[in-house]
Design a protein around this nucleic acid. Structure first.
Lengths: 352, 352
DNA sequence: ATGAAAGCGCTAACAT
DNA sequence: ATGTTAGCGCTTTCAT
């Protein structure tokens, strides 16, 4: 009795001599079924090669897929190069693991910063987490808002309908810079995050400071300048990577009167700055102090440990996951602001 | 006229004064609709706040979700730490980007190597790509095989029903080792990949060599031993990371008569070995030659460039994506074996 | 404990 | 170009 099409619950039920509803209960366990019947159904299923209830049919009926979308405003290769994003995903996966099938990764490509509107409209999601969508004017939330998909933002601006997991970017950045100042540094430069959109590499000009871009970019810059009490000589990186940090370091250090300290707004950028310094024959921290932001593992800097602002990366993901769970249960979670603490490492010291 | 429930195509059609099927066509463009009608439907939709056809209903009807699953046999944080995996995902996303919503990431957790059977049975996939599932006895394929989900494996064993994108692990590993031998090295050690399952750190014992584990582990080891013509003194890493490489380097080098060359079966492991060497006061390549495998960017080794076997990481993903497309179109793609080429860098030199 | 029936929202034949 | 109709495969009332 070969069948060319996949068996369905109807076939299984028929073969077991029960109704479809009973067969359904035998699989879901959502109702009373005698052990004997249950076994008959499962046996019939095994014999027919039935793989269990069809996920799409079940989704349509129940109104949910179990899938959580994770939205990145960049191409996958760039998003996943960032240890902070990976840690976030890990926390998210850990928290949501038992819940459903998994995480649907929604990224952009070379042309688009983030998934297309069509993608967002067609994705079978129960909820979405914005991993790196920190723009004031975020075109990515609208398609999901229309669908009434619960949303959680990470370090974004406060937006109606988007629950927020935030960290104290301004305060932490200020604290790092204050540490540098307290060591006695006068000539301080900064390497700031990509302004986004239209990321570019180069000295930060006034125009870009004032236009609204990424709030993380703006907050970390603001913290640094609040500490200094004036605007800081800054280089804008096109991405948060070691290579970009290195380019920044070269640009800032290979001049007549280089700074004695550089505040980088990510650890990867800081690592690049340190590398550039070494290449230019400068010792860290003797000739140059360098601070970062994030608190990622930097085993390759060993024996140096980076002075940095340690943010709870995995925890951000876990909390976002918990918020998703709450939202799906109909609860309205409070926004969360997580603390960041200064970790003084070996890359900062008084100027000579 | 407030509605408490989300509007459906039926509401939109009624409001526009057309039938549901016409309204459907107005959205999908899959049939002839007059421009005037189309506009009326879209206007009605906009007014009602209709977000477009429901993805679940559409999936059920059409029999596909547009979602491609990517299966990792480890926890997310470990999988995504590997630049090779990221590059693969990037190629995959690039190739499949226009096709559908996105990639569903299916990972394990601390207890399970990979997603659970339930997860695999319930995930709404059109096809699956096994990113790091290289076991002979892979429990992860069975749940998908039963569902008749098209599958593509990366560097796995040849399995019925799983299309394969492979690279020449044996040949490339042999070539790297031959390069080391041609330089005149006699005392050669290897740092091999995790044997999996039951990854552990330590000198590789005979028992593990003989048991069937990861085929990538086995193939790269085999290539090295084929070149040497004998079994090699080897350390098994618990993961392909810089830290593990460092631990391996310490174990292999901090002895009375250390090897003059170490063949590491990944670039991250090689980077760790180099770091360990530096910490022990050994210069690379003067005192120790080190080779890797993969060809990832290692800017932090600068100015050193790693001698390694360069594999087409992104290309693997692209081809896997193309295979998925083929399989979904009903075609049966041929298995692919991609070439790997030796890149001689500055980390290998004749022994002193 | 089991069965009958309705319907989730949509698309695709088919008819007009 | 538009409408009618049948179902995709399942879960969930509601009867029995």
């Amino acid at each position: 009795m070969a069948r060319t099409t996949r068996p369905t619950l109807t076939h299984v039920a028929a073969s077991a001599g029960v109704s479809v509803s009973t067969a359904s209960l035998a699989f879901s366990g959502a109702g009373p079924v005698s052990e004997r019947t249950r076994q008959r159904v499962l046996d019939a299923a095994a014999e027919l090669g039935y793989a269990g209830p069809d996920p799409m049919a079940r989704s349509l009926r129940q109104g949910r897929t179990g899938i959580i979308g994770v939205v990145f405003a960049e191409r996958l290769r760039h998003a996943f190069r960032d240890p902070v994003a990976i840690a976030l995903l890990d926390g998210l996966a850990e928290e949501l693991g038992p819940v459903g099938p998994g995480l649907l990764v929604l990224t952009g490509n070379d042309e688009r910063a983030g998934p297309s509107t069509e993608q967002l409209a067609a994705a079978p999601l129960d909820a979405a987490v914005f991993a790196t969508c920190d723009l004031e004017e975020e075109p990515l939330v609208e398609p999901l808002r229309v669908r009434e998909i619960p949303m959680v933002g990470i370090e974004g601006p406060r937006m109606p309908g988007v629950s927020l997991v935030d960290i104290d970017n301004i305060g932490a950045s200020r604290e790092v810079t204050e540490h540098i100042l307290s060591l006695g540094h006068k000539r301080i430069a900064a390497v700031v995050l990509p302004w986004r959109p239209g990321r570019q590499r180069g000295f930060l000009d006034r125009a870009r400071r004032d236009l609204s871009g990424s709030v993380v970019f703006a907050d970390r810059l603001r913290g640094t300048e609040e500490a200094i009490g004036a605007s800081v000589h800054a280089w804008e990186a096109a991405a948060s990577t070691v290579e970009e940090g290195r380019a920044a370091g070269r640009a800032l250090l290979d001049v007549d009167e280089p700074p004695t300290a550089i505040v980088a707004h990510s650890d990867l950028l800081a690592a690049g700055v340190i590398q550039a310094a070494h290449e230019l024959g400068l010792r860290v921290p003797e000739d140059l102090s360098v601070a970062g932001f994030d608190g990622i593992d930097t085993p390759w800097l060993d024996p140096l440990t980076l002075t940095t602002a340690v943010q709870p990366m995995v925890e951000k993901g876990r909390i976002a996951g918990r918020m998703v769970t709450d939202l799906l249960a109909g609860r309205t979670p409070e926004d969360v602001l997580l603390p960041v603490h200064l970790r003084v490492g070996g890359t900062t010291a008084p100027p000579r």
